[in-house]
Computed example of a mutant assay.
Amino acid sequence: MKNAETVTFGGSALERRAELRGDALALADLAARPGAGMIPLWRGKPLVAGGEDALSIARLPHGHPVFDEARDPPIFLGVEDGEGVWARDISAWEPEDVDLASLGLFLDPTEQRHPDLGGDERFAELRAIMTRITPRDAELAATAKAVLGWHDSHRFCARCGHASEVAMAGWQRDCPACGTHHFPRTDPVVIMLVTSGDEVLLGRSPGWPEGMFSLLAGFIEPGEPIEAAVRREVFEESGVRVGAVSYLASQPWPFPASLMFGCHGHAETREITVDPTEIEQALWVSKDRLARIFNNEDPEIRPARKGAIAHFILWNWLEDQLD
């Protein structure tokens, strides 16, 4: 797919400067520059500023009072326009009147405003804003959310159980007891455009918004090639056999920390037998019907969420833009 890297979170050529992560003096010099910026995140939500038509990920000075309650050191994300960018978790802050029930929703619609911030700055769910920010902001926010989420869930050494410590500007955790080094994890996932002539196989998982269908997807298992994972997952979920498989595009997906491998699989069978422990429903959809779905003209099916690689791949299939 010629435009594969235009998918949301597809990258913006950020200078990640991994060679600086172990250089404390160089990082201190970057942090002391007037243009240095820090992105705060609260429970995985980045701080945003601006209105609907001019939304951006906010960068604050390192010494801003918002970071007074930060529990861990910042994560060095990289360099943009010669200035360093970091991210820092401030989940220890407890907003007033927070709707705890909304925090666990598939798409949290609530926004939180910190008393030390003014104007239009607020914390917003990344899923809700991902298509309204620049590719650079999307890459920064996705990276920050994924790495900070890893720190939150991997505070203890997997080898000996001792509390581990942040190292390498946030890109490593070291165990002081046994010396083991731990690194941020990314879970590989295949997501498949399975076609049979002019039809595509769609499915839905329990708990999704009513009427929402998407491409089938699943985690790649240890020792398994991408192509084999495509065939196995499609068969397990729908009973459909897939033959030839080709790669289309990839997307980092920080919910919490996956890398989606978009593939095109050609169906060898059409009979659907759904595994109810995997998905709720699957069906073949023609290109004509998919076009109506994308135009919100179908009474039964809603398209995959805009910004997700499923939406991206299906749209390009409709437009005959697959390589």
Rank of each mutant, 00 (worst) to 15 (best):
M1W: 01
K2M: 06
K2S: 11
A4L: 04
A4T: 03
A4I: 02
E5A: 04
V7F: 02
G11Q: 08
G11H: 03
S12P: 09
A13F: 14
E15T: 01
A18K: 12
G22E: 12
A28S: 10
L30I: 08
A32I: 00
G37F: 00
M38T: 03
I39P: 00
P40W: 00
P40T: 00
L41Q: 02
R43G: 10
R43D: 13
P46R: 08
L47F: 10
V48K: 11
G50A: 07
A54K: 08
S56L: 06
I57H: 07
I57F: 07
H64S: 05
P65F: 06
P65L: 08
V66T: 07
D68R: 02
E69M: 04
A70D: 03
R71C: 03
P74N: 02
L77A: 09
L77K: 01
V79T: 05
E80Y: 12
D81M: 04
W86I: 00
A87M: 01
W93T: 01
P95A: 09
A101M: 04
S102W: 02
F106L: 14
E111W: 09
R113E: 11
H114T: 02
H114F: 06
P115T: 04
D116A: 14
G119A: 05
R122I: 06
F123R: 08
R127F: 14
R127D: 09
A128D: 10
P135Y: 13
P135R: 11
T143M: 12
A146N: 06
A146W: 01
V147P: 02
G149R: 13
S153N: 08
S153R: 15
F156A: 12
R159E: 12
C160E: 15
H162L: 01
S164K: 07
A167I: 09
M168D: 15
G170S: 03
Q172A: 15
C175P: 05
C175R: 12
P176T: 10
A177T: 07
G179H: 15
T180M: 15
H181N: 07
H181K: 15
H181P: 00
F183K: 13
R185Y: 12
T186F: 05
D187Q: 14
V190Y: 04
M192K: 04
L193F: 07
T195L: 13
S196D: 15
E199I: 04
V200Q: 09
R204V: 11
W208K: 06
W208A: 02
A217M: 10
G218N: 13
E221R: 15
E224S: 08
A228W: 05
G243C: 08
Y247E: 07
S250N: 07
P252W: 01
W253R: 09
S258P: 00
G262N: 03
H264M: 04
G265K: 01
H266Q: 15
A267Y: 02
E271T: 12
E271C: 11
T273E: 06
D275Y: 05
P276H: 11
P276T: 07
W284P: 10
V285C: 12
S286G: 14
L290K: 03
R292I: 00
I293F: 11
I293S: 14
N295I: 00
N295W: 00
N296C: 05
D298M: 02
P299A: 13
I301V: 11
I301L: 14
R302E: 08
R305N: 11
R305W: 02
A310S: 14
F312S: 10
L314D: 01
W315C: 06
N316E: 14
W317R: 07
E319H: 14
E319R: 15
D320G: 10
D323P: 14
